[in-house]
Write a protein that binds this DNA or RNA. Structure first.
Lengths: 231, 231
DNA sequence: CCGCATATTATGGGATACCATAATATCAGC
DNA sequence: GCTGATATTATGGTATCCCATAATATGCGG
């Protein structure tokens, strides 16, 4: 039930402090204002967000449930650390869920979906050209949201959106690697082409290739970071 | 890092009130003490749980993030309702994630996994025979946890566990339907056989069949419930 | 200088209070 | 009996407070 379903509905004029604070905190974590492993001291967050401890504690519970925050007994909350193994698992889950969404879009044969995906991909290319990397991430999210929502999979989208937040630091790195500005959009074009052709299997595989490539790049970057520690 | 990894570690003697309350609330929702759509009035929950509103509010945030509770603006929290469409999406997600876990177990060729699965399945059969349906649900959860944990997929298990909680009311119904006490375990036996044979594809498909059958039964039950409303 | 004991501070756990507003109840007029 | 106005209650939003305990700082003796 959306606004278009209920055009008469009176819309709420504003969000609660808690909702606003949650958005701020989530953005701060995903965009690495707070780094993995960093302590989140309740009183400090009160000062930074300008709200009471009640709000901060409720926000921390929400983020804990999302996996973005971990509570250390007798130490308090920290920004959750995603291990390379967890990152690998997250990429795998994304691969299969995104593949299914792409496949379903191919089965629909809806030219509007193709048009929308091409519009978004054009924006991704433009953002790469302008070196606006945050916009690249945001538009990539839009690309996949379009696949999920147009195939009626908002539960899966909720999952993908949530687990992707946990590896946003990796996404920030993978989009910067050499040639990713060409390979990434090319892979997404393949997804669009398969959807346009109504080829579900090709759409599924193209989506998987895109995610697997990102996973491979991320794994290499993590290995670099752990150079002295890994054999 | 577990107890066996760190045998010297001093274990925390107890959980916080919030953790205990969260478990109670989650169990009460999943086991339908609170029904879908039912209002969760904060002060009432304080009385029922014997804790302050701070605890109750934090618990509600956690459950909201898990999708078990929905907040209605100016109306407060209610037990989230899972629509038939959402249930369908949840079964689909489970199908692919459980399939992948089963396939990975088949690739491992670990006889201990097979033994553990057979032990759990024996318990499911015994619980059916004794008509202990809550035990059937619990053991089925153990069966799938075994698949995920033995294939190193705790992120996916977290997701499956969480979304399955949202359709526990349907699970309670599907396990009761005629012949499910035979078909369910038979389908799980097929999963085990495929894992024992090291046949990943067969394991994947067997897991899918098990979930798809459950989804079909749930869909029929939902249609029955909505009889007067659907053509 | 190091180790141990003690003091102090930081901070999470949990409770309570107050306010504003939406929801509900009540009453009066037609 | 219905409708509109008003009063009352319910309840979520938010802030503040207190306590206990873990962490950290400090001091003293060997």
């Amino acid at each position: 039930m959306s606004v278009s379903d209920q055009p008469m509905r009176v819309l709420r004029p504003e969000k609660t402090l808690r909702e606003l604070a949650l958005e701020k905190m989530r953005d701060a974590i995903v965009n690495m204002h707070f780094r993995a492993g960093e302590r989140l001291v309740e009183r400090d967050l009160c000062d930074q967000l300008g709200v009471s401890r009640t709000i901060v504690r409720e926000v921390l519970r929400h983020l804990e449930s999302e996996g973005l925050v971990a509570i250390q007994p007798n130490r308090g909350p920290i920004v959750a650390e995603t291990t390379p193994e967890e990152a690998r698992q997250i990429y795998e889950i994304r691969g299969v869920l995104e593949g299914i969404a792409a496949k379903a879009c191919a089965a629909q044969k809806d030219p509007r979906v193709v048009a929308e995906l091409e519009r978004i991909l054009g924006g991704i290319r433009a953002s790469y050209a302008a070196n606006e990397l945050p916009a690249v991430l945001s538009a990539t999210t839009d690309f996949y949201r379009t696949l999920f929502e147009n195939s009626g999979r908002h539960v899966a989208w909720g999952i993908v959106n949530s687990i992707t937040a946990r590896i946003n630091h990796l996404r920030s790195m993978t989009i910067k690697t050499p040639d990713r500005d060409k390979q990434g959009p090319a892979q997404m074009q393949k997804i669009i082409d398969a959807i346009k052709a109504g080829d579900g299997q090709a759409a599924y595989e193209a989506a998987n290739v895109h995610v697997k490539n990102a996973a491979t790049i991320a794994e290499a970057l993590l290995a670099e970071q752990q150079g002295p520690r890994s054999g």
